[in-house]
Each structure stands twice: as structure tokens, then as C-alpha cells.
């Protein structure tokens, strides 16, 4: 990964965001959906049936942020993808049963943005990222890349979901799924400030709920390990609820 900061004068500005924290009882922020089964009513039922709650949440957030209405490129970073699906297929193979074609078709890492693209006729560039725990830093780098490539805005989605218990080593998987979507611009919104981190060891594992806390100003900074950086977010303009 390149050294921090990326070799560019570009800056990231946050225009808007949405979060999904199923079951959370502590938020009344209108940008955060706490439902266990997001509606995603804009997706036709015949496509929606194949989406997990996480998939529905991501598609709902992309729709709310104007991805298809405004043709904005999408990045989706996730360490474990859509949770159980690919791993459950391994169990099925191990027991000698046939693998579900529908589940197989949606077990790839870019399945959710693929369904979003099909359902909404949204044909802007889309990419899926896995970065072994460094997803948030990778998302910011990729977002800067899209902006450097001339895109005025990009929507960066970060999600994670639980794994089957036997795969849940140490702290690599969450207990519940969660997701956050950030609409970045190259010039409008709240600026993200980055500064090199003195001690890479001080970096933390950044999860979607932690990003949501940061967006809600319940934590002042996020620290990434690769590259070792500290990220702070400009305060919202007065009168704007962020």
C-alpha cells in the first residue's frame, strides 16, 4: 500500500452518510436504520428475495444516498462479505449435498452491489474490496483514486457480518452485522483531515459501528494501521444535523 498520504492534492469531503445498526437501542439519528430486516422496497421483490438483511441494508443506503439517481460510483469494502453464505456452502459440499445455485451466485464479494446495479439500472463503476481488517483505510484510498480519476463523487460502503462460530477466531468477526455508507466529494461537505500516526501500534481495528460513532461525533478520530494515519472529521456546519 502506498505511503500516507496518497500522492495527490485531492481531499475527501463527506457530503452525507447512512448507517445500519440492527437491534441498536441507543440511537435516534435519522441516518441510522436499526431494523433487523431493512425494507429495501425500491428493489423488485423477485430480486430482493435473494438479499440477506445486510444486502437489503446496503441497497437501501445506496438508494437513500442517491447512488442511482445521480449515477455515483460505488465502492463496497467488507472483510467477510455476506457472512455465512460462502462458508455454509462448504458444509453442504462436505455433507455431499448439492450446492444451492442461487446462494452460490450470491456468494461472491461483489454480489450486493451487483444486485443493486441490476435492480436500479445503475451502471456507474462499482468495486468490492476485502483487505484483511484494513478495509476502512482501503476504502479511503480507493475513494481518492476514483476522485483523482475525475469522478466528482463516490459512495464508499463498509460492512461486516458474523461468521459461523467455528470460524470466529479471536476478535476477527463481529457478533452482529452492521454497515455504513459514506458519500464523498472532492470539494463539498465536511473535510476529512489525516495526519501520520506516530505509533502504528496505536492503530485500532476499524469496524462499521466505530465509523458510525465517529460520524456521530461520539469519538473524535479513527486510526488506521496501514497506512498509519489518524483521521478526523470537520464539524458539521451549524444548523446541519450530522
Amino acid at each position: 500500500m502506498p505511503a500516507c498520504p496518497p500522492a495527490s492534492d485531492l481531499q475527501l469531503y463527506l457530503r452525507d452518510w447512512r448507517g445500519w445498526l440492527p437491534g441498536s437501542a441507543v440511537t435516534d439519528n435519522e441516518r441510522i436504520d436499526v431494523s433487523d430486516q431493512p425494507a429495501a422496497n425500491h428493489i423488485p421483490a423477485m430480486l430482493r428475495r435473494r438479499l440477506t438483511p445486510l444486502g437489503r441494508a446496503v441497497c437501501g443506503m445506496l438508494h437513500a444516498l442517491g447512488s442511482e439517481a445521480e449515477g455515483i460510483p460505488i465502492l463496497h469494502a467488507s472483510r467477510h462479505g455476506d457472512g455465512h453464505r460462502p462458508l455454509d456452502m462448504l458444509d453442504t459440499i462436505a455433507t455431499g449435498d448439492g450446492v444451492s445455485p442461487a446462494r452460490f451466485s450470491l456468494s461472491v464479494h461483489n454480489a450486493i452491489v451487483g444486485v443493486h446495479s441490476i435492480a436500479s439500472g445503475h451502471h456507474a463503476p462499482m468495486a468490492a474490496i476485502a483487505a484483511t481488517g484494513d478495509e476502512f483505510a482501503a476504502l479511503l484510498e480507493e475513494s481518492l483514486g476514483y476522485l483523482a480519476d475525475g469522478q466528482p463523487e463516490v459512495i464508499a460502503v463498509f460492512s461486516d457480518s458474523p461468521l459461523p462460530t467455528r470460524y470466529r477466531a479471536a476478535d476477527i468477526a463481529p457478533e452482529t452485522p452492521a454497515a455504513v455508507a459514506l458519500r464523498f466529494s472532492s470539494r463539498q461537505g465536511r473535510r476529512l483531515h489525516e495526519r501520520p500516526l506516530d505509533h502504528a501500534a496505536a492503530a485500532e481495528t476499524i469496524t462499521p459501528p466505530r465509523v458510525i460513532d465517529w460520524l456521530c461525533r461520539e469519538r473524535s478520530r479513527l486510526t488506521t494501521a496501514r497506512p498509519p494515519c489518524c483521521w478526523t472529521l470537520e464539524a458539521p456546519l451549524r444548523g446541519m444535523q450530522h
Binding site: 423477485m46 448439492g98 444451492s100 445455485p101 442461487a102 451466485s105
Partner: peptide, 17 residues
């Protein structure tokens, strides 16, 4: 009903099962 080609494969598997 509006089923698609993936549904056809899925139904094939269900008939077998």
C-alpha cells in the same frame, strides 16, 4: 410467475432432493 434461470437450477436441485 417470473422465475429466472438460477431458479431453474434451484428447482432442479429441489426435485432431486
Amino acid at each position: 410467475l417470473g422465475l429466472d434461470s438460477i431458479d431453474a437450477l434451484e428447482l432442479g436441485l429441489a426435485l432431486q432432493k
